[in-house]
Nucleic acid binder design. Sequence first.
DNA 1: ATGCTGCATATTTTT
DNA 2: TATGCAGCAT
Length: 771
Amino acid sequence: MPEPKTSSYLDSLNDVQRQAVTTIDGPVLVVAGPGSGKTRVLTFRIAHIIEQGTAPWEILALTFTNKAAREMKGRIEEVVGKRASYIWAGTFHSLFARILRVEAQHIGYPSNFTIYDTDDTKSLLNSIIREFNLDPKVYGANAIKNRISSAKSSLITPKLYEKNEELLAQDKLANMPLVYKIYTAYVARCKKAGAMDFDDLLFRLFELMQNVPEVVQKYREKFKYVLVDEFQDTNTLQYAIIKKLVQYPDSPRNICVVGDDAQSIYAFRGATIQNILDFEQDFGQFGIQTFKLEQNYRSTENIVNTANAVISYNKRQIQKSIWSDKGVGDKIRVIKAVDDNEEGRRVADTILEQKNRYHLQNNDVAILYRTNSQSRIFEEYLRRFNIAYRVYGGQSFYQRKEVKDLIAYLRMVVNPNDEEAFRRSINHPKRGIGGTSVAKVTTLARQQNLTLFEALKHVDLPKRTRHAADGYIHVIEQAMAKADTANAYELADLIAKGSGLTDMLRNDKSIEGMGRLENHEALLDGIKSFVEDDTVIDTDTLPDKSLATYLQNIALLTDADESDSTNTDVVTLMSVHAAKGLEYKSIFVVGLEEKLFPSWMSMDSMEGLDEERRLFYVAITRAELYLTLSYANTRYRYGKMVMNEPSRFLAEVPADAVENTTGGGRRSNDFEFDKVARQREHRARVTGVTPNKRRGTARFAAPKVDPATFEPSPITEVETGRRVLHLKFGEGKVLHVDGGADNRIATIHFSDLPQPEKRIMLKFAKLQVLD
DNA sequence: ATGCTGCATATTTTT
DNA sequence: TATGCAGCAT
């Protein structure tokens, strides 16, 4: 007797989806084409497992992004209620870190281990390279980081690396025969510092499961059902861990992986579709059940057919036929521009045209490019056309220097062995402890096998430097003494003040300096709201609201987690990679030229080109209704004009899906189109000058003043009483000017700011005098 | 120890 | 074009 309640959510699924949801026992492979309701299947499946009597905490659901995890949890909650919060749903890295905190002692790590981010890794590698007296030009930190990362992802320890002829040969060829030594040292130094990098979170867990039977046993019993999202993006190491969990004698093998080989775009990071093929191999004898979600609910037939045609040029793929019943839809438009400027203008103009013709909102539109550097020109023209936009990508809040500087201190308090945090904080703010002193500390640490922080206490230093060092030690130890009782905010506040970081930033009156201060304060505010937030964070080991818990939370949070005010109506600009999983009514895929898309770096191998093609496939399948492709004959790259052929991918788009642009008639049409565009641009420029009055502009983009019309005046014209325009702050009135000759500082009242009075160094400022 | 200038350098990047 | 870092001058 099926319960009537159960049927309610199952009713909204198609046949294949429903089978994929209700077949919960044994190995299951779900091949999910773009827009095929993959997330629905995954969430309903988990809900179904719970409805069938499994406890939420016995379910492990692995995703790649925090965002995907949050979304999944939210949607499960809609079906099963609050119980959803007990599901082990999260990213590989965050869930594994959580397990490692509990089990760390088995592998000689403290449970408060630090997580090294990419910058920490590179900086540590650079120290090692310097200590080995190797040429940092030959031994590039980035290249070595990638070597080490891919070694770890392929389960190759330093010992194995040392014996691996192939890897050694590759290194020799790259003129870096000593990579294995660096790898060995790097691993040792991480361990010494009580730190794990992103790969270690996976690798160490694997090691743990490999070497400590009680631990594997424990988690095998705990997780009754395991689900993996975006399986095509997993690497060998991730798959190895999954197998550890579900592949053992007498295992029920309740494993479900969901993915799409055609959307695998992270091979350059070690992801391999081979995992999908291996999965079929590894679990085949245990009655694997495969479901193919082939109906695309997102896009028109024209778009789906184009995507199918394009991807068919790839050799290796899982057979499937994606289809849509949403009607043929509009043809695909191709914009040919003579140069990158024209491309920008034509795209902006087409957006306006589509907004009018199809009543689209800015929100319905996204511009996708291969490289982030392409965004600039589009930003320029969107501003000129008065279209609000937002650029995704680039560096996140937690990557900023000033933010990382304070965090380095906090990390020292939690784990004083953290070498990178030490290096970062020891002379920041400048207290006169430079390279020479740090070298002394390092030597002593090496000799006596001390951590850097311990060595600093005992090292012989000149009086002045000793004094500075004691000050530093005092700040850290003072906070450490309170770490058990004080919450994260109290400690952070103590350190921000005690270290002199806040003062240093306050004293910097430059515009950039003010931005830094703002970020510094935003970080403190963030910590405060973390402390005040009443949701309990499940860490198993760390005390709630503690600094350690806070750090653990942010370490794995790089994502666009920055309270993304989704309500604002803006056009989205981002790389194709960043667009995965998203959808828009109208999509512009731009810069479709050889050597750009496909990227020149990928063009020398078949695999590289196939991955670029999958990337193109991902790009076009983001579109629901309208797809526009564009390219330019010439564009500026690194300041040089370059000429490129149209992308080969354009030739792979079926001609009958494209709006007819052949023949001379279209050319005159193009010309008209351009003329109209220029007129519009002109109007927008004329009306666009009125600053500070635009509605619905994005937080990060579209400044109050239009840079296109902004003309800085000579600083001699900035005088008391004058009205001036500032690029960031808008319109203001000069209250007075002081300082002599070269160092004139103007105090200006900007009425649009929360704190209207700003002191601005005229030497650096760009101000336009208005009257 | 620090600050500046000149030069080499240059995908994509869930964590 | 923009950025970051190495080497030099202070």
